[in-house]
Design a protein around this nucleic acid. Structure first.
Lengths: 212, 212
DNA sequence: AGAACTTGCAACACGGATGACGCAACTTCG
DNA sequence: CGAAGTTGCGTCATCCGTGTTGCAAGTTCT
């Protein structure tokens, strides 16, 4: 992807990031916003946006690609394969939430953006299913729920939690996982989920800088 | 609101409904679709659409208003105040799902469309909260979850369930309520929710014709 | 300092969507 | 049947967003 173009100058690269962030800010509020509004929000001339992104389409795809990298990094950083399912679920949730809060629009477009994006998304999906498998084996997940439905509910809850900006990602994740597993009904027999006040420093995706 | 215009002729009224349904069909797939595409899907000339709806904006608002009426009717038909919370919750869910499946786009626009729409939505929201209050009092809802969060999770699940067109609304509602209350984790102490195979003929909103 | 790069500005071309008319043919309804 | 209402079609005007280009001024990097 874009291998022929040589690296941008430092200031140009900063401009690109500024534009991407502004685009996310603007488009999340109004998906039909014009390039001009995005440029204005970025404090940049409209033509500059067009210099960096050939078309509106390529801008959106670039956003998706950038967000997807953050997404994958967030999942990686949680090391879902190397921890007990419950812990892994919480870690992944917290990390993903952190990304989703800032890149909601770019991530909500689904894998309809590009090939690479689709690949990463389906890969993460597979990992999610695997995690749920382990969770099921460990008795954390009920056996009589279809994995597909479980994943969809999980995604839906993440989407919802990301909307409410109240509270730290860790707290949101705690409430989310609790709701996912126990629902909002009376959890009769179970002890309260040990996710109420977690302290271990979760590997943060924002601190880990990927290829850049 | 548009009280000065006298009633349309029967065929014109049919045209309006046809356009609204086509618009829902088209816009749910592509929110940026043009008026022409909508007209084509409705089997109508573009100018006719413009004759009935002054602007694109008014078309969308009309859709929201129509969908909102169906929505309110669906809630009404379930009589949430006159049944045990659990039953009411199921009935409301099934009825609302039936509407949401067909009017997903028009309903997803939130109450940002018009004053009347906003009023009905907040009214329904209040009813939802009241239902949850009763459910809580009846021991069907846990005490330690914020009502706001519970409602948001409920809405999110409805949104998600409406996306998957697989199965009858009743089945979807059953699974939805089950998930809402018990989550996807092991429900240790509780007997399986009695919502697995419900038979009582739920009052259907589509059979009840509101002001028209 | 000097070459290479980047940006803002102004202007232009272009396409598509929107919205408004008038008119002839058709349908509804009294 | 006949008046009123409705629709399709062609046409026109207009606006808005997109995408491009050239040039002068500023910035980065060596």
């Amino acid at each position: 992807m874009s291998g022929t173009t040589r690296a941008l100058r430092s200031d140009a690269e900063r401009t690109v990031r500024t534009i991407l962030e502004a685009a996310e800010r603007v488009l999340s509020r109004n998906p039909a916003a014009s390039m001009e509004q995005i440029a204005e929000a970025a404090g940049v001339a409209r033509t500059t946006v067009h210099r960096r992104f050939a078309s509106r389409e390529s801008l959106v795809e670039a956003m998706a690609e950038w967000a997807t990298r953050q997404f994958a990094a967030a999942v990686d950083a949680a090391r879902p394969e190397q921890a007990p399912p419950l812990v892994a679920l919480y870690q992944v949730t917290a990390n993903v939430l952190r990304v989703k809060i800032d890149w909601g629009f770019a991530m909500s477009r689904g894998p309809s953006a590009g090939a690479e994006v689709a690949r990463v998304h389906s890969e993460v999906e597979a990992r999610c299913d695997r995690l749920f498998q382990q969770a099921r084996a460990a008795g954390v997940l009920r056996e009589d729920v279809e994995p597909e439905w479980a994943r969809r509910v999980y995604y839906a809850l993440i989407h919802e939690a990301a909307q409410s900006r109240d509270g730290e990602p860790e707290a949101l994740a705690g409430r989310l996982v609790d709701t996912l597993l126990r629902g909002v009904g009376p959890g009769a027999g179970l002890p309260s989920t040990p996710l109420a006040a977690p302290s271990p420093p979760a590997a943060s995706p924002t601190s880990a800088s990927p290829s850049e």
